[in-house]
């Protein structure tokens, strides 16, 4: 995926913040997935239509993390979410 690629939540997926975490429900499979606080922030950014670059910009402002580490972690999370059918890379 490239940094400017559009990302969207799959239509059969819903999520809710619970405490500091986030739980995603795949309505197609009935499976639940959990995200930690950083993952929850990224999910909200995906919901608001941000690209990978924009997600990293926003997270970098809130967390003390090196940009290259952040981008690698964000790519890994997005690839994982896409592989599970929870998001769509357009």
């Amino acid at each position: 995926m490239n940094s400017a690629q559009k990302i969207s939540i799959s239509p059969h997926v819903v999520g809710r913040a619970v405490g500091e975490e986030f739980v995603i429900l795949d309505l197609a499979s009935g499976a639940y997935f959990g995200l930690d606080a950083v993952g929850a922030d990224m999910w909200r950014l995906i919901e608001s239509g941000k690209t990978l670059a924009e997600i990293c910009d926003a997270v970098e402002r809130d967390y003390d993390v090196a940009r290259d580490v952040l981008e690698a972690d964000a790519r890994a999370l997005l690839d994982d979410l896409a592989a599970r059918g929870l998001i769509v890379l357009e």
Binding site: R16, V18, G19, E20, E21, V23, Y32, G34
Partner: peptide, 11 residues
């Protein structure tokens, strides 16, 4: 429990 654990238990 965490709220996540509570949610999953309730479900």
């Amino acid at each position: 429990t965490s709220a996540r654990e509570a949610l999953l238990a309730l479900l």
